[in-house]
């Protein structure tokens, strides 16, 4: 209502910023809402690697659903400037995946530090800016019929996501021990 139908670049920028905040709010809860007793129970039945992988998986699915929902709401309320729908949806899913992985791990750190969600924003924003920058530039191509989406950059993002998963599996056991 406030901006009717914004032009493609504004739409794109707004979309990714909203994605970032959705992710912070959706994923931050995943570790903080666990009570001490339940963590102890998980500790007795699962290995840390299994636990963190299942957390990552759950948050990924949650974030993918949220991404699709926000894409739907954006097209309903702010118009649809997307020229290439399929690649853009692919990028949205990839972006949701990247965001949820990084923030799941940061949520684990923030929960261990017994801090509120504020520390997650402090820790997360600098780490996520590079990926967000890449995602915004990639998805700009989906708004112009002549531009193609560079495959190298997509691969780079996928590689970064795999790196985050690997680091999470390696480093989580140190956070888990108490």
């Amino acid at each position: 209502m406030a901006m009717n139908e914004p032009e493609a670049k504004v739409w794109n920028g707004l979309f990714w910023v909203i994605q970032l905040f959705i992710c912070i709010n959706a994923v931050a809860k995943s570790f903080m809402q666990e009570s001490r007793g339940r963590m102890l129970y998980f500790y007795s039945i699962a290995s840390p690697a299994d636990f963190v992988l299942s957390k990552l998986l759950f948050n990924t699915v949650l974030m993918l659903l949220m991404s699709l929902l926000s894409l739907l709401l954006f097209t309903l309320f702010l118009g649809n400037p997307i020229q290439k729908a399929a690649p853009f949806i692919g990028l949205v899913l990839l972006g949701g995946w990247s965001l949820s992985l990084v923030f799941s791990f940061l949520a684990a750190i923030a929960a261990r530090a017994q801090q509120n969600a504020a520390i997650m924003a402090v820790l997360g924003f600098p780490l996520i800016i590079p990926q967000l920058l890449l995602l915004m530039r990639l998805s700009n191509a989906a708004f112009a019929p002549l531009l193609t989406i560079p495959a190298n950059t997509v691969l780079l993002l996928v590689a970064l996501d795999l790196l985050v998963i690997m680091l999470a599996v390696i480093l989580f056991p140190f956070l888990w021990k108490d």
């Binding site: 990084v102 750190i109 530090a113 956070l175």
Partner: peptide, 18 residues
């Protein structure tokens, strides 16, 4: 020490792309 070491390692990996 434990938490900040974990963050330091994670941050260095993320520093590389940036």
């Amino acid at each position: 020490a434990r938490i900040s070491s974990v963050y330091n390692i994670f941050a260095y990996a993320m520093l590389f792309p940036s």
